[in-house]
Nucleic acid binder design. Structure first.
Ligand SMILES: Nc1ncnc2c1ncn2[C@@H]1O[C@H](COP(=O)(O)OP(=O)(O)OP(=O)(O)O)[C@@H](O)[C@H]1O
Length: 744
DNA sequence: TTCCCTGCCGTTTTT
DNA sequence: CGGCAGGGAA
């Protein structure tokens, strides 16, 4: 146990927030000012000094990972296990929903539908209604349904024909969910609220229980979440919320920054505390971030200062291609680690879109830099994992027709689309779920005897396993099940090499289940499925792992790293092309950039490229407007900046400047390479001449004796100090020019 | 019914 | 470029 030193660990404002007594409290403060620390210490203080039972506390974090971290910190401080509820809005409301379900006529074994399940369901409903299930239509219906649930504060009147269509589909969608005893992500939040509205006694039960509420990242709560906080605090009135309006980056999914800005209206007599000292970043980083966010008009201004002396300038790098960007970042990281200046886990690379990770990953792999990718395709969203999970979901919840339909022919049983339609029609006729209809043994009209036989076998199989599920450890059961249906063999025979990988993921799922049983011995299959549905990639991120972290800017919220790269600082990417229509979207993009910058403790390296591979095509790119918002004197600009008429890879990778010659006019100001083209110390990446001194990441220093090829394909022969000579493909090597006197 | 091939489309961000 | 749905052939 680490005894809490209230004086040493907290500044006076933080201490005020931690020790604050009863009533609503808002800590509105900038990045890195110790808001999360306030919440953690307040929790510990309430439990340790004021002797509030953890069971009477409720703490809400943005990710499961943050929840686990907070719990661990508190336990370390007070020296004992903390059993109170600490979790995300979704995990907390799904717990409430499961608890109250039997009392309001729901089955607590309900299934949670993820985005993928939602899409499948909407798709099948569209088909039933004779609508072509285009991905656009599915997306719009999904967005509409979601908005209807999470933004009940201002219910949208259907305006466009598309919205009217969505409005017609919505009731069917919701009814179908209920019939399948399933809830989507938004339901998890909104259904408990509806239940509380209908049954004030039930609400009172919960609201009385939670004497103190603590909520992190309040700026990104949506209407339902705000409502839930309001309701749960309605008896004791002790809400402590912390957040930063400048870090609100989820408006696109319904978050409303008004929840934090109007906190004092929602919770009258709220005490507001501001924190102004930043403990995370060096001054140049903090000043750059502040200067950027100043450009937003709609914000509550904040002051932020640091007493950290010195600090490196931010670096802005420019590359010809995204490929080079990845290579250079990797080389940079590898170099610092080899020189024992950092460890891999000190670094994070952020980007706007998941698609950007590819070129970055390629670079890291080529330079043998270990990395961990957060986001993109999640483990539990993989096809093979969802296939096996569908079996488990059916064992837990027989009404889950979506899962039944999914596994009906996985692995292949000779039961195709036609047979499935017959079965679906039959079940509908009888008012049963698919599995019930199969179990009943009643003949399905239209089915071939072969198909009927196979379906019968499936029903029997599921019956056997649901028997076993009563008293056997889930992971044993699942291992046997996967073995018996031959899932791994199925993928292998169908997809070969790739199927092998799927097999590995099946094994990993079984291992995850075993791990869950170890962690939560009292947990059952339903608990596991719920946990898995609400798990995100970042939750399984292990900081201790010696690896560079790759993630989107969105995922970086709340984290911190010594050295941060922000790749792809380009128009169309950051700000994203689809968020440039109006000023408010643009401001959210700027906040995203601000969040990224403020994650860094020691160093920020920004990069942009001249052309980027998109959809397999070369697309030109120009630097982000946000870069100009960083004061010149905080920025060190380096990189391969071309000048007109020069050969080498620059010309090839830069379609809009090809054809230029030394005699062309200077490039106009709106060109891709504004301002700093002439002032930077030029260090073209792959330009070598015989006689150059170089440093290789593993072979040390040497001198170039011969150069072959050009651009990306340059090969150089190097005599190393250590006495050996090597031929090196410049593109793949971790090379660095040693200082030399070459004019610009 | 299955499997293979073609052609189309996607990229914003995610609980 | 890559994944996947849908169409056509075995
Ligand atoms: N009083 C303090 N003295 C020293 N370090 C502190 C203090 N308060 C917080 N810190 C440190 O500063 C860093 C940022 O703290 P924290 O994550 O709580 O800030 P935050 O306001 O939640 O940040 P953000 O909003 O950017 O996520 C952490 O490394 C934390 O340990």
């Amino acid at each position: 146990m680490t005894p809490i030193d209230w004086d040493k660990d907290l500044n006076p404002e933080q201490r005020e927030a931690v020790l604050f007594g009863d009533g609503p409290l808002l800590v509105l403060a900038g990045a890195g000012s110790g808001k999360t620390r306030v919440l953690t210490y307040r929790y510990a203080h309430l439990v340790y000094e004021r002797e509030v039972y953890p069971s009477r506390m409720l703490a809400v974090t943005f990710t499961n990972k943050a929840a686990a971290e907070m719990r661990a910190r508190i336990e370390k401080q007070i020296g004992e296990g903390v059993g109170g509820w600490i979790g995300t809005f979704h995990s907390i409301s799904s717990r409430i929903l499961r608890q109250v379900a039997p009392r309001v006529g729901f089955d607590p074994h309900f299934t949670i539908f993820d985005a993928d399940d939602q899409r499948s369901l909407i798709k099948s409903i569209c088909r039933d209604h004779g609508l072509d299930p285009t991905s656009e239509r599915i997306g719009r219906v999904r967005a509409y349904v979601s908005r209807l649930k999470t933004d009940r504060g201002n219910i949208p009147e259907p305006e466009s024909p598309m919205e009217e269509e969505a409005a017609r589909i919505e009731p069917v969608y919701t009814q179908t969910l209920r019939r399948m005893n399933a809830f989507d992500f938004d339901d998890l939040l909104v259904v408990p609220i509806e239940i509380f509205q209908e049954d004030p006694h039930l609400l009172e039960e919960y609201a009385s229980r939670f004497r103190y509420l603590l909520v992190d990242e309040y700026q990104d709560t949506n209407w339902v979440q705000n409502e839930l906080v309001r309701m749960l605090s309605s008896v004791h009135g002790n809400v402590a919320a912390v957040g930063d309006d400048d870090q609100s980056i989820y408006r696109w999914r319904g978050a409303d920054v008004k929840n934090i800005l109007d906190f004092e209206e929602t919770f009258p007599n709220a005490h507001v505390i501001r924190l102004e000292q930043n403990y995370r970043s060096t001054k140049p980083i903090l000043d750059a971030a502040s200067a950027v966010i100043e450009n937003n008009v709609s914000r509550r201004g904040k002051r932020l200062w640091t007493d950290k002396p010195g600090g490196d300038l931010l670096t802005l790098q420019r590359f010809f291609t995204d490929r080079e960007e990845g290579m250079s970042i990797a080389r940079d990281i590898q170099r610092r680690v080899r020189m024992n200046m950092n460890r891999f886990s000190d670094f994070a690379v952020f980007y706007r879109t998941n698609a950007q990770s590819r070129s970055l990953e390629d670079g890291l792999r080529l330079h043998a830099v270990p990395y961990r990718l957060i986001g993109g395709l999640r483990f539990y969203e993989r096809k093979e994992v969802k296939d096996l999970l569908a079996y488990l979901r059916l064992l837990a919840n027989e009404a889950d027709d979506l899962s039944f339909a999914r596994i009906l022919n996985v692995p292949a049983r000779g039961v195709g689309a036609k047979s499935r339609e017959h079965l679906v029609a039959h079940a509908k006729e009888r008012g049963q779920s698919l599995l019930e209809a199969v179990r009943s043994g009643a003949p399905v009209p239209g089915l071939t005897s072969r198909a009927a036989g196979r379906i019968g076998e499936l029903g029997a199989l599921l019956g056997r396993y649901s028997e076993r599920a009563r008293d056997e450890a889930p992971h044993d059961l699942v291992r046997d099940l996967a073995e018996e249906i031959g899932l791994v063999r199925f993928y292998e025979s169908k997809e070969g090499e790739k199927g092998l990988l799927r097999g590995e993921n099946i094994d990993e799922l079984i291992a995850a289940l075993a791990d869950f049983e170890r962690r939560k011995p009292s947990g059952n299959l339903v608990d596991f499925l719920a946990e898995v549905s609400l798990l995100t990639d970042i939750d399984s991120w292990d900081e201790g792992q010696e690896a560079v972290t790759l993630m989107t800017l969105h995922n970086s919220k709340g984290l911190e790293f010594p050295r941060v790269y922000i790749a792809g600082a380009e128009e169309g990417l950051l700000p994203h092309a689809r968020s440039m229509m109006d000023e408010s979207q643009l401001e959210e993009e700027r906040r995203l950039f601000y969040v990224g910058l403020t994650r860094a403790m020691e160093k920020v390296t920004l990069s942009h490229v001249g052309s980027r591979l998109r959809y397999g095509e070369i697309a030109p790119a120009i630097p982000s407007r946000f870069l100009k918002e960083i004061p010149e004197e905080l920025l060190e600009k380096i990189g391969a900046l071309p000048s007109a008429g020069r050969g080498g890879i620059g010309a090839a990778a830069r379609p809009y400047s090809s054809g230029r010659s030394l005699f062309d006019e200077p490039e106009p100001a709106h060109d891709a390479f504004p301002d700093y083209e002439n002032e930077s110390q030029e260090q073209p990446v792959f330009r070598f001449e015989a006689g150059d001194g170089i440093r290789h990441a593993s072979w040390g220093d040497g001198r170039v004796t011969r150069v072959e090829g050009s651009g990306m394909d340059t090969k150089i022969t190097v005599e190393f100090r250590a006495g050996f000579t090597k031929k090196i493909m410049v593109r793949y090597a971790s090379l660095e020019h040693l200082p030399r006197k070459r004019g610009r």
